[in-house]
């Protein structure tokens, strides 16, 4: 998903547009208006719909819907998922990016393709593969049952499915960034006697921190919002294995529309916060990269 969309670099400054390289004013205005209408219908309207439906019956009903025991349990579970999944995939992302970006080896592009695989697997299939492994009739089902271990329709299954879905996020942000930064600074640190970890903490990490944070933010948004994969493995047990998106679905199917949108409004807020962070971090990384480019030309 986001990883396939390349990190935006600061492009070479364009020449000021002249009449030869731009369109007449009426064409420009028309295109801007068409874009804004299209985006308003497809982006702004759904966002407004969430909040207007959530508050349709007033603030009191809104607050009650959120102060419900099942809703609170769903919020807790979603936060727990973020606390488990995001750190694991962040550590993996950093380690994988170090191996891939800082060394030259055979089969590198194949490895990147494999890391990208979860992007092209339908969320439903991401859930399915873990049901096939750990479900009752799955490969390991009988063994798990005889040892009284529950994975599917329990929290470990939700963790696994979410880990799978968000697997590439951090790695995919870091690999192009670390490749662009090269290895000279790290080599200098190592030659001067720094250990591997010292080099990472003092040289690499300060260089990649904004990109890393960017990946973490995206990973977090997907972790908390994942629906398809989680819905297959969770079993929809209220108060136990319902994450926020699943709680939204349950409420919606019970025609408790206002409550469904109340929980949805929290998730929409999360999406908005994510977008704000994302824009800020994009600006930071592009600034850092262009500062480095300037540094090189200044030598």
């Amino acid at each position: 998903m986001a990883g396939t969309v390349a990190m935006r670099r600061t492009a070479a400054r364009r020449q000021p547009d002249t009449s030869a390289t731009t369109e007449p004013t009426w064409v420009r205005t028309l295109l801007i208006v068409v874009s804004l209408i299209f985006l308003a219908i497809f982006l702004l309207l759904p966002l407004l719909a969430v909040f207007s439906q959530a508050l349709a019956k007033g603030w009191e009903v809104y607050a009650q819907s959120l102060w419900d025991a099942d809703a609170l349990a769903a919020i807790r579970l979603t936060l727990l998922m973020a606390l488990i999944v995001v750190p694991i995939n962040t550590v993996f992302g950093v380690i994988a990016a170090w191996a891939i970006a800082k060394f030259q080896f055979v089969g590198k592009s194949l490895l990147i393709t494999f890391i990208d695989l979860p992007y092209s697997v339908s969320p439903v299939i991401a859930g399915l593969i873990f049901v096939l492994l750990f479900g009752r009739q799955g490969w390991m089902g009988p063994w798990l049952e005889s040892h009284d271990i529950r994975i599917i329709f329990a929290i470990p299954g939700i963790v696994l499915a979410t880990l799978f879905v968000t697997f590439p996020f951090v790695a995919r942000e870091l690999i192009p960034l670390m490749q662009a930064q090269g290895t000279e600074e790290e080599e200098a640190a190592c030659v001067l006697g720094a250990s591997g970890l010292q080099t990472f903490w003092r040289v690499t990490l300060p260089n990649i921190k904004w990109g890393l944070l960017y990946g973490v933010i995206l990973c977090n948004a997907r972790t908390m919002g994942e629906f398809g994969a989680v819905s297959v493995v969770s079993g929809h047990i209220r108060g136990e294995t319902n994450t926020m998106p699943l709680q939204i679905e349950n409420l919606y199917h019970e025609y408790n529309i206002t409550a469904a949108f109340a929980v949805a409004s929290l998730m929409a807020l999360l999406a908005l916060v994510t977008l704000v962070f994302k824009s800020f971090l994009q600006w930071k990384t592009s600034q850092q990269l262009s500062a480095e480019e300037l540094g090189y030309t200044g030598d």
Binding site: P46, V50, G225, P245, F261, M267, A271, S279
Partner: peptide, 19 residues
């Protein structure tokens, strides 16, 4: 507007669905 373009990435699919 540029930042808003990413909304479908950031918005949980269930929320987009009911909206």
């Amino acid at each position: 507007v540029d930042a808003m373009v990413d909304l479908p990435f950031a918005m949980p699919t269930a929320v987009s669905g009911i909206a």
